[in-house]
């Protein structure tokens, strides 16, 4: 689904059967079978076969089936993408995305199958070309940020405060929203620092990110909690929907709540919050 809820995207190493066999119990929004950074150079072929059989045989539950392929300028990228498309991946993560051509190359492999693309922006060039990348294909549904490679690329030190990432993060959110797609923040890789994860996720959410990357199933709950709508948000959203409903019944072109007019973004946000509330109620 194009606009699926993607609060968390969980990376699973593509060459570890012991982790891959338990995918359905994690209840991640998106599972990413990783063929890139989590796999050693000399095991790339083995991981591709294992990911193929994982896609074919393992129950993903409600999780979206994702694969992170190797970049197209490696000997593995094209074969990774062909395998993923052929074996039922629902979304392909394209690392080191720097230009529209890379996205178009992946789109060509996907053809008319319903497989989405999520470019991972993790270089200075990628950030500056974000709009071309996002607009390159109707298949692009989300832009991801990759901070580890990005800080290395710009020659900055990765800090907990993340000042070095601020502009890139904002740029990715702006670009995603301007293209009406989702934005997902970088992976939080310290699995022992839940306070740090919580703070970083709150910050990412405040910038406009729709979710975040993770590497351990224990991180899912923390992120989901932050994206859970509050009681006040739900009540307000209900009032907005009621007001819209009343205005429609009265044949009015515009609706208002109190003295405030309800414009399209407010209505859409309310709708989204009520949808989210339903998911959390499950």
């Amino acid at each position: 689904m194009k606009n699926k809820l993607r609060r968390n995207r969980l990376y699973m190493p593509g060459n570890s059967p012991n982790l891959l066999k338990n995918i359905s119990v994690f209840s991640a929004d998106t599972i990413i079978l990783d063929l890139e950074d989590a796999v050693a150079q000399f095991e790339k072929d083995a991981a591709r076969f294992l990911v193929k059989y994982t896609l074919q045989n393992v129950d993903f539950g409600d999780s979206e089936k994702g694969v992170r392929i190797n970049p197209f300028d490696t000997p593995f990228g094209k074969s990774d993408a062909e395998m993923a498309v052929k074996n039922g991946a629902e979304i392909i993560f394209l690392p080191k995305a720097e230009n529209a051509e890379q996205v178009k190359a992946l789109e060509k492999i996907i053809g008319n199958k319903e497989v989405w693309i999520s470019p991972i922006i993790e270089t200075a060039k990628g950030v500056l070309n974000a709009n071309a990348i996002a607009a390159a294909s109707q298949k692009v549904v989300m832009l991801c940020f990759g901070a580890e490679d990005f800080t290395r690329d710009i020659g900055a030190e990765r800090t907990k405060e993340g000042n070095e990432l601020f502009w890139a993060r904002s740029m990715i959110v702006m670009t995603a929203k301007a293209n009406e797609i989702q934005a997902s923040d970088t992976v939080f890789s310290d699995v022992n620092d839940n306070d740090g994860l919580e703070a970083e996720t709150r910050f990412a959410k405040s910038l406009g990110f729709d979710g975040k990357g993770i590497i351990h199933p224990n991180q899912i709950k923390i992120i989901n909690k932050i994206y859970e709508p509050t009681y006040d948000e739900i009540e307000y959203a209900k009032k907005v929907m009621d007001a819209l409903d009343t205005a429609k019944k009265q044949g009015k072109g515009t609706a208002s709540l109190g003295k405030k007019m309800i414009d399209k973004p407010v209505a859409e946000r309310a709708k989204r919050i009520l949808e989210l509330a339903k998911i959390y109620k499950k």
Binding site: P17, K21, D45, A46, R48, F49, L50, K52, Y53, T54, Q56, N57, V58
Partner: peptide, 9 residues
Amino acid sequence: WVIRARLEC
């Protein structure tokens, strides 16, 4: 399926 994947590789 793991045995099949490993053998195929």
